[in-house]
Structure formats: structure tokens, C-alpha cells
Write a protein that binds this DNA or RNA. Structure first.
Length: 783
DNA sequence: TGATCCCGCCAACGT
DNA sequence: ACGTTGGCGGGATCA
């Protein structure tokens, strides 16, 4: 044990290197412990090698590291060859224990490398913290950091004392949905806007006033404290094991993720996140130290999320300067029916307490529902008490639904869903949907694709956006589970899809100003013609503030929030005179002809965006399988599709990847980018459009078939390091069913792999769809 | 410098 | 009493 605790110093052994190299791919279980005692020491060159290896993973970080390594390649090489001899090589020691090598992000990569994204049920994926810590040569403390955030995503769950169960990404989509939902319930979107607004308003008057205001607002908004969001099937056992102290990291991590999921340009600055998170707990004193601490934690979380490729670091440049921020690069989370169904299902079986309630409960416990301000002194004990009570209550409620806590079943449950779903009365679902807001269908979303910007800053684009590893692999996983888990336990997903979004079919629009999306937070999709005075005001305000988003590495500006810049050439003229809302209206009207409805959104960040839509036909609209209020699928079919649910994001990849820059060019995309005017096409039109029809498009979009053979895909992924070498991503049958899908990120990524430097065009293009844009990009359109 | 964030003390818990 | 978890924030690094 002592060893465990102080793993740090050891002499490096050569073989350790080897082990590191390969083992990564290996699925967990019991990793090789050959190296009984300290393997490589972090400081030695060996570490460099490791890093190199790890570099395979598509990440900024890795790149950076690579660079570093490159600096003293000789050393590395030497190390390679001669390592064994000079174990303790003092010389090397100093070489670089560089901080980066010890970074949480890197560590997390190593950690993740040990386990498959989609573990099969069969293998018992348990994680022994001690072992991991030892093997990775880190203090256990660090492992906790990683595990805690993974836990927040339900990628792992605590089994017992020193032990966790690895679930991989099986539960990810559900978790994200749940988080999104909770985030919506918490009005995070609004909070974010409020903060931004305030920031802008009083730039300087620090503290008190502002804080109080905030506090007030939060309190008034009835900001409920919510604690850990659990997935139905899964958490209980963990809960029992865990002390109820799930306090910070886990919860903070979830909240952080929620912020991304609810904000439109899925970009969240640390500052804002910290404020919201702080505000939430206790509005009390936003003293600086607290804020600072919060930020520190957020960095920790962000590092892990980055390793998971759920977010990526960017910079938002404002007048004031650059602010660190992160952009969501994870799968788009659609409110999904599946979730609804599932939930419904679960609800259904047991005595229906109240439909939504149970789920809600499960998702989050609301503590202190609306207490105005808390007293400054927080009584942890009370809080805890409350929480525990809530927790218990929740358990009870959920109990019937998710009777089993069997570990194994957990992951798999998901897969089980489909069958269940099928069984579930469709009706319920419809009802739900209908309630939601079907009536008003119109919503329009601006995509925040940064077309223009992209052009300006090509580099960014190239950046590898790691293709969603998850997606591809996910599907494969699905099948497995089915067999395994008894439907009975299937944890139904707690998530309820909010009615909030019910889009039926989506069209992707690109608009010139990349960064901004104007979003109005309106649950209902109706087009709201200016309902919000705020909106206008905000816009104006924002307009002042220019934001640029930059990728970390290059400082390349990825996108500019400042609409002005982007629009300048193009829409600028109109902008000032017309309010965005007005514009929306106009457009909407126009659209209506097409039967398109849109929902205007005001973006927190900047708003003026004119809405320019660009049918990204090539990129495609994705249909969401589930959604549809109107989706025409037969229930069964839906269910089936949904089962793939996670698929939502997966499908796109396949389709996209294949495209090459040249193809894109061929497509005439260029014309698009430039287009100053907003173009909006109905899906139909798109299809018709020659451009779109372009070979590339067709092939790619049509997701399924033609594209890159699965082999290619696998190859690519493997290369990129997204998936272990051995793993194959089967062509996804599902995809074919899926009408259309586009995943921006993937695109870019693929492009990178495929052809390298055609970028200008490709980059731009690729970027369009960008993940951030994705969610934002799609707008619901009605046929 | 400011942005990052490693490190590990030490308290809260569990057993 | 000891081990496990993990909040927390000083202060080292990095850019």
C-alpha cells in the first residue's frame, strides 16, 4: 500500500514503456501488472515516449506534447534505445517532468485508453483504483478526479470501495439528455444570459451590487439546487455506497455539461460557468477566492471532458480580452423521444405517480426549492439531510421501476430499451409530444456555423475534431446488450424529453456569422417576433462586445462572435436598421411559404446575427429519428431506430467522412459561403438542388451506403486513435434508416484524414456543420 | 503577467 | 484507528 500511495518516485524501467504502449488498447479487466513496482518514472525520457504514443489521440494536447517532444528528439531516441541501461539516468530526469506530462488531461487519456468506449457486457469491466493509480503512476487522488467526472457522466459507477464499474459511453447519450433536460429546467440558458448581460452592463462595478442582484435573481428564479443527476437504472447502488456527499466535482461536472447543452452556441466560458455554479450553491459571497477555486475545479473537469472529446478549449475574445472558454464537441443531444418513451415506459409500469414527476425526481432532486436567499451560512448538515431525504424518496419512487441494481445489467440496459419501447404504447408518447408544443411548430434556429469566419481562419478548422468516436462504436454495442439484459431491469431512461424541442425535420442552415446564434429562450417554438424587448437590448449590447473564439493552439480564430465582422460584407446593411427579430419575422414569413418555421433564438453571446440561413444541404439535415412529432415512422420502427438512439450522433459520421475536399469543392459550396444573403431552403428544395445533389453530397449524406466503407472508417478511427486498433466499427445499418444526418465535426475530422491540405475550401466547409452548429444548426422545419 | 492546474494537506467518511 | 474520498487552495508552470 505504501507503494500505492507513493507511486511517484521510481526508477523507470524500460519494459514499462512497452507495457504502456500496447496495453492501452486492452480492455480493462486486469491489466498487466507485470511491472510490479514502479515502472517508468515520469521524469525520464520514457515518459516522452509515452507521450508520443499517446499523441496518437487526436487532441490538441497531444499535438502540443508532440511539439515538445520534437524539441528534444534526440533525447527521446536515446531514451528509447538505451533506456534500460540507464534506468536511473539522472540526466534524463530533469528532462521533463514537465508539467504537462503530469497533466490531468494526459493522465485521463491514459486512463481512458485502458477501457473500451463500449465495453461488452461480457467482460467484467471493473476498475480498481489502486491498480490504476499504480499503473499510471499517479497518486490516487488524481484518479479520483478523473473518476469523479466520469461518474458524473455515468461512464463509470462505483461498485464498492476501491472499485468502479466501467460503462464506457453506453450511457452517455442518455446521460446527456438527462443533463440537458435538467439544465433546461434550471433555466440555465437564462442564467447564462443574465450573467452575460450583467457583465456587460456593469463591467466594472464589481461585487456587491452585482452579486446581490444575481443572488436575487437566482433566488427568485427559484434556482433550485439540484444534486447529482442519476440515470435510473444505475445509480442507486452507487448512492448507497457513496456517501451523500456527492457534492462538488461530480455535481459540478454535471452542471458544467448542462451549460453546454443548453447554451446555443455551445460555448461556455469558465467565468460564466463559475459564476453560475457558485450562484447556484450559495449566492452568498462571491468572494474572489471562491471564484478562483471554482475555476480551478472547472479546469480539472474541463480537462477530463476534453479527454473525452466532449469539449474543446477555445478562447472568446472580447473587448476586454481573451477569456478561456470551452466549446462542446460532444454529440448533439436531442431531446429525444426515446427518452420520453423510456421514461414513459418506466412510469407506466409502476403505478403512475405522476408521469413526469418520477422522472424528474430521478433526474434531479430539488432541494430548497425556492428559498429566496440562503443565509450565508450554509448548513451543510441540513443540506445533506435534505439531500439524503430526497434521495431516499427518489429511490423509493424509482424502486419499482428499477428494481435491480445489478451491475452488469446497467450498461446494457440501454440496449434493452428498444424492445421495451416497442412495447410501450405509442399513444402515450404521442400524447406527450402533442402536449409539448406541437401546436406551435415554428421554430427557427440559427446555426452558428461559422462559415465566414472559418474562411478567415482556416487553421482552426483543420483541427481535428475528433470524430465522434462514440458514435460509430456505439452502435455496435447496442446489439450486445440486448441479449444480456433482462428487460425488466432496464433502467429506463429518466430523461424526459422535454417537450421543449420537438422538431420534426431538420434543416441545417448556415449563417454567416459563425459564432452567433440568436436565441430566444422560448420553450415554445413559436416564432416570436420580437417579443423580447430584451432581445433587442441584448443584442445591442452584445454588438458592442465582440467575441472571437479562438482555438487554443493557434489563436486562430475560429469563429467570430462578432457578427459585425462576419456580416460586414454581407448582411451588414440590413442589420442595423432591422432588428434581428424583425428580420426573423420577415424571414419567417417568407419561410412559411415553404412551410418552414423557425424559431428565433437569441444567442447569448451575440446577437445580431442576422439570420442567414444557408442550407447546408451538403451537410445535411439530419433527421432525428425519434423526434418527430410528425415523424412518420411507425411506432415500431421508431422504436427500433430509437434503440439506436445513441445513434443520433453516430450516423452522421459515416456519411460525412467520406467527403473529400475536392468533392466539396465540386459541389459548389464556395458559392454558398460567400453568399451574403440568407438562403433558406426547404428540405425539399435542398434535395432538388443541384448542388446538393452533387455527387459528394449524395454519397456522403446518404449516409449509409456509399460512403466510405466501414473499413475505411475503421481505419480512420483507429488511426486517429479514436478506437483501439482491434476494434472495428461496423457499418451501421442503422444509418441507413436514418434519413439524413450530418455531423459536422466528423466532417472536419475526416477531411483531415482524408486529404489533407485542401483545406481552404474543405476547411470551411467542413466547419460549417460544426458541432456547435449542429445543435444550433439544425432548425426544425416543418414540411 | 495572467492562464493553467499540479500537488498534496487534511477533513469528512467509511469500516 | 486506519483507509478511502475528495475539498481546497498555495504556488509552480506555462504561454
Amino acid at each position: 500500500r505504501s507503494v500505492l500511495k507513493t507511486p511517484l518516485k521510481q526508477a523507470a524501467t524500460s519494459h514499462s514503456v512497452l507495457t504502456e504502449l500496447q496495453p492501452d488498447c486492452q480492455p480493462l479487466t486486469t491489466p498487466p501488472k507485470p511491472k510490479e513496482i514502479l515502472p517508468a518514472d515520469p521524469w525520464t525520457p520514457t515518459s516522452n515516449l509515452k507521450m508520443l504514443i499517446s499523441a496518437a489521440s487526436p487532441e490538441i494536447r497531444s499535438r502540443e506534447q508532440r511539439r515538445e517532444l520534437s524539441n528534444n528528439p534526440s533525447e527521446v531516441l536515446q531514451a528509447k534505445h538505451c533506456l534500460q541501461e540507464h534506468l536511473s539516468g539522472d540526466e534524463y530526469e530533469k528532462s521533463q517532468p514537465s508539467r504537462k506530462e503530469k497533466s490531468l488531461g494526459l493522465l485521463c487519456h491514459k486512463f481512458l485508453a485502458r477501457y473500451p468506449d463500449y465495453p461488452s457486457t461480457a467482460e467484467n469491466n471493473y476498475i480498481c483504483l489502486d491498480e490504476v493509480a499504480e499503473e499510471l503512476n499517479v497518486e490516487r487522488r488524481r484518479i479520483y478526479d478523473i473518476v469523479n467526472v466520469l461518474e458524473s457522466l455515468h461512464m463509470v459507477s462505483r461498485l464498492a470501495k476501491n472499485r468502479y464499474t466501467w460503462h464506457g459511453r453506453h450511457n452517455l447519450s442518455k446521460t446527456l439528455q438527462a443533463l440537458k433536460k435538467v439544465g433546461e429546467e434550471n433555466k440555465y440558458t437564462q442564467q447564462i444570459q443574465m450573467i452575460k448581460k450583467r457583465e456587460y452592463e456593469h463591467e466594472f462595478d464589481f461585487d456587491d451590487e452585482r452579486n446581490e442582484e444575481m443572488a436575487r435573481s437566482f433566488g427568485s428564479s427559484e434556482q433550485s439546487e439540484m444534486s447529482f443527476v442519476e440515470l435510473p437504472g444505475m445509480e442507486f447502488r452507487a448512492a448507497s455506497v457513496n456517501s451523500r456527499k456527492d457534492k462538488s466535482l461530480r455535481v459540478m461536472s454535471q452542471k458544467f455539461v448542462m451549460l453546454f447543452l443548453v447554451s446555443t452556441p455551445q460555448i461556455v466560458s469558465l467565468e460564466v460557468a463559475a459564476k453560475i455554479l457558485i450562484g447556484e450553491d450559495q449566492l452568498e459571497d462571491l468572494d474572489k477566492s471562491k471564484f478562483k477555486t471554482k475555476i480551478r475545479r472547472l479546469y480539472d473537469i474541463a480537462n477530463v471532458l476534453s479527454s473525452l472529446e466532449l469539449i474543446k478549449k477555445v478562447h472568446v475574445t472580447e473587448e476586454r480580452g481573451r477569456k478561456p472558454a470551452f466549446k462542446w464537441t460532444g454529440p448533439e443531444v436531442l431531446p429525444n423521444i426515446q427518452g420520453t418513451k423510456l421514461e414513459t415506459t418506466s412510469t407506466t409500469s409502476p403505478p403512475p405517480i405522476s408521469e413526469s414527476i418520477p422522472s424528474k425526481e430521478q433526474c434531479s432532486k430539488n432541494l430548497f426549492p425556492s428559498r429566496g436567499k440562503q443565509n450565508f451560512t450554509r448548513h451543510p448538515s441540513l443540506i445533506k439531510l435534505v439531500k439524503s431525504i430526497e434521495n431516499d424518496r427518489r429511490k423509493i419512487q424509482s424502486a419499482p421501476t428499477s428494481p435491480v441494481k445489478i451491475s452488469a445489467s446497467t450498461d446494457q440496459n440501454i440496449s434493452a430499451f428498444p424492445s421495451k419501447m416497442a412495447q410501450v404504447p405509442v399513444i402515450a408518447k404521442h400524447q406527450l409530444e402533442g402536449q409539448s408544443k406541437k401546436a406551435k411548430e415554428m421554430k427557427m434556429k440559427l446555426s452558428r456555423s461559422a462559415l465566414d469566419c472559418n474562411l478567415s481562419s482556416p487553421e482552426v478548422v483543420l483541427k481535428p475534431q475528433p470524430p465522434r468516436p462514440a458514435a460509430p462504436s456505439e452502435q455496435p454495442a447496442v446489439p450486445q446488450p440486448l441479449g444480456v439484459c433482462p428487460p425488466s431491469h432496464s433502467p429506463v431512461s429518466p430523461v424526459i424529453l422535454p417537450q421543449t424541442h420537438s422538431g420534426v425535420s431538420y434543416a441545417i442552415y448556415l449563417h454567416p456569422s459563425p459564432a452567433h446564434t440568436v436565441t430566444t429562450y422560448s420553450p415554445s417554438f413559436m416564432l416570436q417576433p420580437l417579443p423580447h424587448a430584451n432581445l433587442t437590448g441584448i443584442e445591442s449590447i452584445n454588438s458592442k462586445v465582440v467575441n472571437k473564439i479562438t482555438t487554443e493552439e493557434g489563436d486562430n480564430q475560429i469563429a467570430t462572435d462578432d457578427p459585425t465582422k462576419c456580416l460586414t460584407a454581407k448582411e451588414r446593411p440590413n442589420t442595423k436598421s432591422e432588428t434581428s427579430s424583425q428580420r426573423c419575422l420577415k424571414r419567417s414569413q417568407a419561410l412559411q411559404e415553404n412551410n418552414l418555421v423557425k424559431r428565433c433564438r437569441s444567442d447569448e453571446e451575440s446577437l445580431d446575427t442576422s439570420l442567414t440561413f444557408f442550407p447546408s444541404g451538403y451537410l445535411i439535415p439530419l433527421t432525428q429519428c425519434t423526434h418527430g412529432n410528425k415523424a412518420g415512422f411507425p411506432d415500431e420502427e421508431k422504436a427500433g431506430i430509437c434503440s439506436l438512439q445513441h445513434t443520433t450522433y453516430s450516423s452522421p459520421i459515416a456519411g460525412v467522412i467520406p467527403m473529400t475536399a475536392s468533392e466539396l469543392k465540386a459541389v459548389n459550396i464556395p458559392a454558398f459561403h460567400i453568399t451574403p444573403l440568407n438562403i433558406m431552403l426547404s428540405p425539399t428544395s435542398i434535395a432538388a438542388a443541384p448542388v446538393l445533389s452533387g455527387s459528394s453530397l449524395n454519397s456522403s449524406n446518404t449516409s449509409s451506403a456509399p460512403n466510405p466503407s466501414s473499413s475505411v472508417l475503421n481505419f480512420t478511427l483507429q488511426h486517429v486513435g479514436l478506437i483501439p486498433a482491434g476494434v472495428q466499427v461496423p457499418a451501421n445499418p442503422v444509418l441507413q434508416h436514418v434519413p439524413v444526418s450530418a455531423q459536422p465535426e466528423n466532417v472536419s475530422h475526416s477531411s483531415e484524414n482524408v486529404n489533407l491540405q485542401e483545406e481552404k475550401v474543405s476547411k470551411n466547409i467542413l466547419q460549417l456543420p460544426d458541432r456547435g452548429g449542429l445543435s444550433g444548426g439544425y432548425s426544425a422545419v416543418i414540411p
